[in-house]
Amino acid sequence: DENEERIRAFALYKGIDPEKARELWERGEINKDDEEKAWREYK
């Protein structure tokens, strides 16, 4: 689903483990601007 892809995109963008990215996502600790930037680059 799209959230999974967004988490993966963010992990790649930040160079972090996707599981770590998922934890940040679930806790609401992902910066929305960074997340959008990562998503645009990923697509």
Rank of each mutant, 00 (worst) to 15 (best):
D1P: 11
D1A: 12
D1L: 11
D1H: 10
D1F: 11
D1R: 11
D1M: 12
D1I: 11
D1Y: 13
E2N: 12
E2T: 12
E2M: 14
E2H: 11
E2W: 14
E2S: 13
E2F: 13
N3H: 14
N3E: 14
N3D: 13
N3W: 15
N3K: 15
N3A: 14
N3Q: 14
N3V: 15
N3I: 15
N3Y: 15
E4T: 08
E4A: 09
E4I: 08
E4L: 09
E4R: 05
E4N: 08
E4Q: 08
E4Y: 09
E4G: 06
E4D: 12
E5I: 07
E5R: 06
E5L: 09
E5W: 07
E5T: 05
E5A: 10
E5F: 05
E5M: 08
E5Y: 06
E5H: 09
E5D: 11
E5N: 06
R6G: 02
R6W: 11
R6V: 05
R6T: 04
R6M: 11
R6Y: 07
R6L: 11
R6K: 10
R6E: 04
I7P: 00
I7Q: 01
I7M: 05
I7K: 01
I7D: 01
I7A: 01
I7H: 01
I7R: 00
I7N: 01
R8A: 10
R8W: 15
R8N: 09
R8M: 14
R8G: 04
R8H: 12
R8Q: 12
R8S: 05
R8I: 15
R8C: 13
R8L: 15
A9N: 05
A9G: 01
A9I: 09
A9S: 05
A9Y: 08
A9V: 08
A9M: 05
F10R: 00
F10L: 14
F10M: 08
F10T: 02
F10V: 12
F10Y: 15
F10N: 02
F10Q: 01
F10K: 00
F10H: 02
A11W: 02
A11V: 01
A11Y: 02
A11Q: 01
A11R: 00
A11E: 01
A11D: 00
A11P: 00
A11L: 01
A11F: 01
L12H: 10
L12M: 13
L12V: 10
L12A: 13
L12P: 00
L12Q: 13
L12T: 09
L12N: 08
L12C: 14
L12S: 09
L12K: 13
Y13G: 02
Y13R: 01
Y13M: 08
Y13A: 05
Y13E: 04
Y13D: 03
Y13I: 05
Y13Q: 03
K14L: 15
K14E: 04
K14P: 00
K14H: 12
K14T: 13
K14C: 15
K14N: 10
K14Q: 10
K14S: 11
G15M: 03
G15H: 08
G15I: 01
G15N: 10
G15W: 00
G15R: 05
G15T: 01
G15Q: 08
G15C: 13
G15E: 04
I16T: 01
I16E: 00
I16D: 00
I16Y: 04
I16K: 00
I16W: 05
I16Q: 00
D17S: 15
D17T: 15
D17H: 10
D17K: 08
D17W: 03
D17Q: 08
D17Y: 03
D17C: 14
D17A: 13
P18D: 10
P18H: 14
P18M: 15
P18T: 14
P18Y: 15
P18C: 14
P18N: 11
P18V: 15
P18K: 11
E19M: 11
E19R: 09
E19H: 09
E19C: 14
E19L: 09
E19D: 13
E19T: 09
E19F: 07
E19Q: 12
K20F: 12
K20L: 14
K20E: 14
K20H: 13
K20C: 15
K20I: 14
K20V: 14
A21Q: 00
A21T: 01
A21N: 00
A21E: 00
A21G: 01
A21F: 02
A21C: 07
A21D: 00
A21W: 02
A21Y: 02
A21K: 00
A21V: 09
A21R: 00
R22M: 05
R22N: 02
R22F: 07
R22V: 03
R22I: 04
R22P: 00
R22Y: 06
R22W: 07
R22L: 07
R22Q: 06
R22E: 01
E23T: 06
E23L: 10
E23H: 06
E23V: 08
E23I: 08
E23M: 07
E23S: 06
E23G: 04
E23W: 08
L24H: 03
L24P: 00
L24S: 03
L24G: 00
L24C: 09
L24E: 03
L24K: 03
L24N: 01
L24F: 05
W25P: 00
W25E: 00
W25I: 09
W25L: 08
W25Q: 03
W25T: 00
W25F: 13
W25V: 04
W25M: 08
W25S: 02
W25C: 07
W25A: 04
W25G: 00
E26F: 11
E26M: 13
E26K: 10
E26A: 13
E26Y: 13
E26V: 11
E26L: 14
E26R: 10
E26T: 09
E26W: 08
R27W: 05
R27S: 12
R27K: 13
R27G: 06
R27F: 05
R27Q: 10
R27C: 09
G28D: 05
G28H: 06
G28K: 04
G28C: 09
G28R: 04
G28V: 01
G28E: 03
G28M: 05
G28W: 02
E29M: 12
E29L: 14
E29C: 14
I30A: 02
I30Q: 02
I30D: 01
I30Y: 11
I30C: 04
I30V: 12
I30P: 01
N31R: 07
N31D: 14
N31C: 09
N31F: 06
N31K: 08
N31A: 11
N31V: 06
N31T: 14
N31Q: 09
N31W: 06
K32Q: 11
K32H: 10
K32V: 10
K32D: 08
K32S: 12
K32N: 07
K32A: 13
K32M: 09
K32L: 12
K32E: 11
K32R: 11
K32F: 11
K32I: 11
D33A: 11
D33Q: 10
D33M: 08
D33E: 14
D33I: 08
D33G: 08
D33Y: 09
D33V: 10
D33R: 06
D33W: 08
D34W: 05
D34L: 05
D34Y: 03
D34T: 05
D34R: 01
D34G: 02
D34E: 15
D34I: 06
E35D: 08
E35K: 08
E35A: 15
E35L: 15
E35N: 07
E35S: 09
E35P: 01
E35T: 10
E35I: 15
E35R: 06
E36A: 08
E36Q: 07
E36P: 01
E36F: 07
E36S: 05
E36N: 06
E36R: 05
E36H: 04
E36C: 11
E36Y: 06
K37N: 13
K37L: 11
K37C: 10
K37A: 15
K37D: 10
A38L: 04
A38N: 04
A38E: 02
A38P: 02
A38G: 05
A38H: 03
A38I: 07
A38F: 12
A38K: 03
W39T: 01
W39I: 04
W39N: 02
W39K: 03
W39S: 02
W39G: 02
W39F: 07
W39Y: 07
W39C: 08
W39V: 03
W39P: 01
W39M: 07
W39E: 04
R40G: 07
R40H: 12
R40L: 13
R40Q: 14
R40S: 12
R40K: 14
R40W: 13
R40A: 14
R40Y: 14
R40N: 13
R40T: 12
E41H: 11
E41S: 09
E41A: 14
E41C: 12
E41R: 07
E41W: 15
E41I: 11
E41K: 12
E41Q: 13
E41V: 09
E41Y: 13
Y42H: 06
Y42T: 03
Y42V: 04
Y42A: 04
Y42F: 09
Y42P: 02
Y42L: 05
Y42N: 04
K43H: 12
K43Y: 12
K43W: 13
K43L: 14
K43E: 09
K43D: 07
K43R: 12
K43P: 05
